[in-house]
């Protein structure tokens, strides 16, 4: 359990720092997620065959699928630890709104895992045979996508607080909401590779990211409040 060394000037920053520390330390969060992501991607040629033509065709979409799955990994522990040992009860009496607290926790989680997964995405895509020119756009898209995954996933995690089966349930709740970013992200990559205009897909992906940014914290705040009563 990390200690709250809150400098009164910025409790937000203190919370972010603490949570980031926890997510980096907590059972090797980023290493675990990155390892999972790489393992998934390594299974792809093993299950579908090593033909470069097939792989390069499905690479952009597959990386998005694996990114979504890898984003699920650490959701279960996102709020649970602090819920169980009473940190949330403390935080609730503090100066920060629960919505903001939840957002900061998601942000810390994302900095710890989503950011690293996003950085790996273009590399993995190229390994599977996507053109090198895709790297920049793939990175930007993965950053936006993984942030939406983190916020939507956080909403799912907050809903299952105190339930008997966390992990699988979160996956079941959250994956349908991952459908739009996966579609837009994979579509964006597809459009780029085939030389079609990318603007539409990119703006739709951004729109969903903003939507998750607006709705996620509200949902998490409501769910946390209900869990804490």
């Amino acid at each position: 359990m990390g200690e709250l060394k809150a400098s009164p000037a910025s409790p937000s920053l203190a919370l972010l720092k603490r949570d980031l520390g926890l997510s980096l330390a907590r059972g090797g969060g980023p290493v675990l997620a990155a390892g999972f992501y790489l393992t998934l991607m390594a299974m792809v040629p093993l299950s579908l065959g090593p033909e470069a033509q097939t792989l390069s065709k499905i690479a952009p979409g597959l990386t998005w699928l694996c990114l979504a799955l890898a984003s699920l990994l650490s959701l279960e522990r996102l709020f649970e630890r602090d819920y169980e040992d009473g940190v949330f009860d403390l935080l609730r009496t503090g100066p920060l709104a629960l919505e903001w607290v939840a957002f900061l926790k998601c942000l810390a989680q994302w900095l710890g895992t989503g950011l690293i997964l996003s950085l790996m995405t273009p590399v993995v895509m190229i390994l599977l045979g996507a053109p090198v020119g895709v790297a920049g756009l793939a990175l930007v898209a993965a950053l936006i996508g993984s942030l939406s995954f983190a916020l939507i996933g956080g909403a799912g995690a907050s809903l299952t607080l105190g339930s008997r089966k966390g992990g699988v349930l979160i996956a079941l709740l959250v994956l349908p909401f991952y459908v739009p970013p996966v579609i837009f992200g994979a579509g964006l990559m597809q459009a780029f590779v085939t030389g079609a205009p990318v603007f539409q897909a990119l703006s739709l992906l951004c729109a969903y990211g903003l939507f998750a940014l607006a709705l996620g914290p509200i949902a998490m705040g409501a769910a946390l409040r209900s869990a804490l009563n």
Binding site: S163, R164, L169, L173, A223
Partner: peptide, 16 residues
Amino acid sequence: IALHASIEDEQRAAKS
């Protein structure tokens, strides 16, 4: 349905 079934407390389940 799964979420409702997994939370024991009826009121909390309803809210979530």
